[in-house]
Computed example of a mutant assay.
Amino acid sequence: MPVTLATWNINSIRLRETLVKRLLTEEAPDILCLQECKSPVEKMPLETFRGLGYGHVVARGQKGYNGVAILSKLPVEDAGDLDFAGLGHARHVAARLESGVTIHNFYVPAGGDIPDRAVNEKFGQKLDYVREMRDFFRENRPERAILVGDLNIAPREDDVWSHKQLLKVVSHTPIEVEHLAEAQEAGGWVDVTRADIPEGKLYSWWSYRARDWDAADKGRRLDHVWASPDIALAAHGSRILRAARGWDQPSDHAPVFACFDL
């Protein structure tokens, strides 16, 4: 059965409820994974989404920060959550489809502005978080699993507008890229987006600071879709809905899509 999945850092599910409704109406993915919901679960507008056919929800939230949610047309069961680096944040939730496929939805810490853990605690937390992802997947090798979310790291040189200029900018520093590669390798994860779109510049995030983000096009690919090796070949149709970055009062991220023949 073909399943279309999307991942999107929405930057406040309540503030951008209308944008989520638009995506669900116009694009109609079977599953939408949201990050940075910035709301307790009980205050998320879930009834609105249920009214659009997304009657199955697995979510973790907290007031004003973080928060992850999985909205699904298909039946799913809650498969728990993980608290890497002991932050006590709502940064992960998992859901299991009736087919046995588990979907992991992650929101990795952004890491602050200074790429030095000695002077920036947030950067250290980010590195610790990704390292603990690595350790978990080494001990719990994923099978029939999909990992999505805002991983807040652009790993490849063509995942950023300027590799040279961003080498010392948080999200593309060598140590972050190395940590993410180790986490990916530990689980045997396949980068589905790049398997489908192997060449060329590709972005899912554009800063709010750019007056004309579209013309400047100084983007980064921070949002990812990975699959365990046993189902990676079932993935196809990857795309980034760049147009959503230009919607009214947008998130600074664009949704990333992939299809899976499950």
Rank of each mutant, 00 (worst) to 15 (best):
F106G: 01
F123V: 04
L87A: 15
G86H: 11
A118G: 13
L74G: 00
L82R: 12
V108D: 00
G100E: 13
N140P: 10
V76D: 00
G124S: 09
D135S: 14
T102K: 04
E77L: 11
G67V: 04
A110H: 13
V130R: 04
Y129K: 09
A94V: 03
G80F: 00
L71G: 00
R96K: 12
F136K: 06
F84D: 02
D113C: 04
F137W: 15
R96C: 02
E77Q: 14
S99H: 11
D128C: 10
A85R: 02
E98F: 04
E98R: 15
T102W: 01
G86L: 09
V108E: 03
I103G: 02
R96P: 00
D128S: 14
A145V: 05
A110M: 11
E143Y: 06
P109N: 10
V93C: 11
L82A: 07
V101I: 14
A94H: 01
R144V: 05
V108S: 01
G80Q: 03
V101R: 01
K73P: 07
F123S: 01
G67K: 02
D135M: 11
Q125W: 03
D78V: 08
I103M: 07
N120I: 05
I70C: 02
N105K: 02
G124K: 08
V130K: 04
V101D: 01
D81M: 08
L97R: 02
D83A: 11
L87S: 11
E98M: 12
E143N: 07
A69F: 04
Y129P: 01
A90C: 12
R144M: 09
Y107P: 01
A85Y: 04
R138I: 06
G86M: 08
G80V: 05
D116L: 07
M133S: 01
P75S: 07
E143W: 03
P142F: 07
L71D: 00
N105T: 07
A85W: 00
G100Q: 12
G124A: 11
R117Y: 11
P75C: 09
V119Y: 14
F106R: 00
T102L: 07
N140A: 12
Y107K: 09
R96N: 07
V76G: 00
L71C: 06
F136Y: 14
R117F: 08
F136V: 10
Q125L: 13
L87E: 13
F84E: 03
A79Y: 04
P142K: 07
G86Y: 14
G124I: 05
N140C: 11
K126N: 08
A85D: 12
N140V: 10
A69P: 05
G80L: 07
K122W: 05
K122I: 08
L87P: 08
E132G: 08
D83F: 06
H104W: 06
E139D: 15
R131I: 08
A110N: 13
L71H: 02
D113E: 15
V93A: 03
V93M: 03
L127G: 00
A90E: 05
D116P: 15
D116W: 13
N120S: 13
R134C: 13
G112E: 06
E132R: 12
F136I: 09
L74I: 10
R141C: 10
G124D: 08
M133Y: 04
L97T: 01
D135R: 10
L74Q: 02
L71M: 05
H92A: 09
L71S: 00
Q125G: 08
E139P: 03
L87C: 10
R91M: 09
